[in-house]
Design a protein around this nucleic acid. Structure first.
Length: 112
RNA sequence: UUAGUGCGAAAAGUGGUCGCGUAUGCAUUAUGGGAUUCACACUUGGUGAAUUUUAGCAUAUGAGGAAAGUCCGGGCUUCGCAGGGCAGGAUGCCGGAUAACGUCCGGUGGAGGCAACUCUAAGGAAAGUGCAACAGAAAGUAUACUACCAUAUGUAUAUAUGGAAAAGGUGAAAUGGCAGUGUAAGAGACUACCGCUUAUCUGGUAACAGGUAAGGCAUUGUAAACCCCAUCCGAAGCAACUCAAAUAUGGGUAGAUACGGCGGCCCGUCGUUACUCAUGGUAUGAGGCUUAAGACAAUUGGCGACAGUUGUAACAGAUAGAUGAUCACUCUAGACAGAACCCGGCUUACUUCGCGCUAAGUUU
RNA sequence: GCAGAAGUACUCAAGUGGCUGAAGAGGUGCCCCUGCUAAGGGUAUAGGCCGGGUGACCGGUGCGAGGGUUCAAAUCCCUCCUUCUGCG
C-alpha cells in the first residue's frame, strides 16, 4: 500500500476509540480519528465471536484488499479502525468492499 | 446387494490481471519500472532509440493431516549440582522396539460380538490401617429371627433347655457349587465331578498352559482409599536464553561566567553543554529460527514395531504476525480447519476414494 | 505462544464416597403494616426437564458433557466443552 501503514500499538487503538467517532452498518463498524500525519493508518479488529482463526484471518484479508484497491479515493491523515461484526462471517469480497465504502461515505473521508 | 469390520491414499485443478513475506541477483550519479514520441516487423502485441518521471525490478519459493487440544515423552536453553536419601509425582500381566514415553509391536489371561474383529489402570487384600450407609439374627473376633429336630412340662397350641446351620426372609455381597450317602433333624461329617489352596512334573525366555498328588474349604469386598513391592523422574520454559544497546544513574575531563527564565537594570536565584569511563540490561534491534533421533525410493535382517546399507530431492520462517482478491474454463461442486523453537506419540474435529475380510440374502 | 483455576435451582453458593428425596442466603408467592407505594415484619409451598394424575402427589432423569472404578459417584480416574486469570 503506497500511502498507508497498519495501526500497531494498543495505545493507538485506544486513542481512536476514545474519540467515539464511529459509524456502523450490518457487517462493519468504523472509527476515524485525524492523526496529523500525511499517511493513513488502518487497524483491523476481529473478535473471537466472529469465528475460528481461518475465518478471522480471511476477514482481515478482505478488508485489507478492499482498502488497497480503493486507496486513492481516501483522504490522507487519518487513523481508521475497522471492527468486524459476527454477521459478516459468510460474505464475499464484493459485499465487504461495498460495506467499507459505504462507511467511508458516511464519515465524509472520501475525495471523489 | 445390505449390514459390519480392518488397512491405505488424497485434501479440486489450469490459465490471465492486481497484491503480500522470504532468499538470491542487478540497481539505488541512469540499471530497472511507468508515461509520451519515433523507427522496425506487424492481427492483438513485441523489439530498438530518444525525452520525461519514479525507486525499485527480475527469478525462485511460500500452512496441515490434524498446523488444533496442550494430555504424555524427548531435543535445546538457563538456573542448580561431590555423592546419596526423604518427601512428592508417574507407571504397573509377559517379552521386545525406541532418544524417550502413559506410545508402538508380538504374545498370555479376561470381557463383548454369529463372525471378521474390537476393548482391557490386568502387581499385592495370609505386612498393616481405614471404610462397607439403609435393611438384616449376623457385614469379619461371625452369628441364630422365622422355620426344623430331640428332651422336659403339657390334651393340644405353647414355654424352657439343647442340637444343627439345610430351607425362608434382608442385602451389592451371607463363609465353596451341585448330586448322593448319612442322621432324631442336619452339616465337607463322608463320597464323585467342578472350583479353590499347597506341593510337584512337563512345555514355554516369560506371562501362562496342561497333568499328578494332597488338603478338606480356612482366607468377604474395596488399593481410579491410605499403603506395600518393582521401575522411572532436579526445576523452569523460546514471553527460555545470548549479543549490541538510546535514555537514565554515578564518576572524570574540558568549557565558561556564556545562554535562557524571574527582573526596567545590577546583584541574586533556578535551569541548561560537549567528550569519555563505569554500572545495569529497560525501549529498540539482531541472534535463537530451521538440515532434522528428518522425508522418499530400493535393498538386507526381523512374524512385527523397527534397525542397517545405498541412492534421490534438498528452499515457509512471519513478528499486530506474510498465501489473498478477481475473471474464465473443467469436474466428483470442494468438509474440518491457519505454522510461531523443533521432533515422536495420544486425543478430538472432519470430506472423498480405493483395497482386503466377515455375516445374511439373491443369482449362476 | 506458554502456565494455571473454576463450572451445583433464576442469582450467590455449602456440600470431599451412603438419611442429597440437594443445606443456607437473596429473589419469587401470600398475609400484616399504610389513604397508596417503598422500606419493615410474619408465613408457606414448590424448586430444572420428561411422563402419568381432576388434585394431593407418583415415577424417571438431572450437580458443564461423555465414558470408567465401586454394591453405591456432585465427590475418585480419563477424555472433551465453556468461562476466567497470570506471564512482554
Amino acid at each position: 500500500m503506497k500511502f498507508s501503514e497498519s495501526l500497531k500499538k494498543t495505545s493507538d487503538f485506544q486513542t481512536v476509540y476514545k474519540k467515539r467517532k464511529s459509524k456502523a452498518n450490518k457487517y462493519l463498524i468504523m472509527y476515524v480519528h485525524k492523526n496529523g500525519l500525511n499517511i493513513n493508518r488502518l487497524g483491523i479488529s476481529c473478535s473471537k465471536k466472529v469465528g475460528n482463526s481461518v475465518v478471522r484471518h480471511r476477514m482481515a484479508r478482505l478488508i485489507r484488499e478492499s482498502y488497497r484497491l480503493h486507496e486513492e479515493y481516501f483522504n490522507t491523515g487519518l487513523d481508521m479502525v475497522v471492527v468486524v461484526r459476527p454477521s459478516a462471517k459468510d460474505i464475499d469480497y464484493h459485499k465487504m468492499s461495498s460495506a467499507l465504502m459505504h462507511l467511508s461515505n458516511l464519515h465524509h473521508i472520501t475525495c471523489k
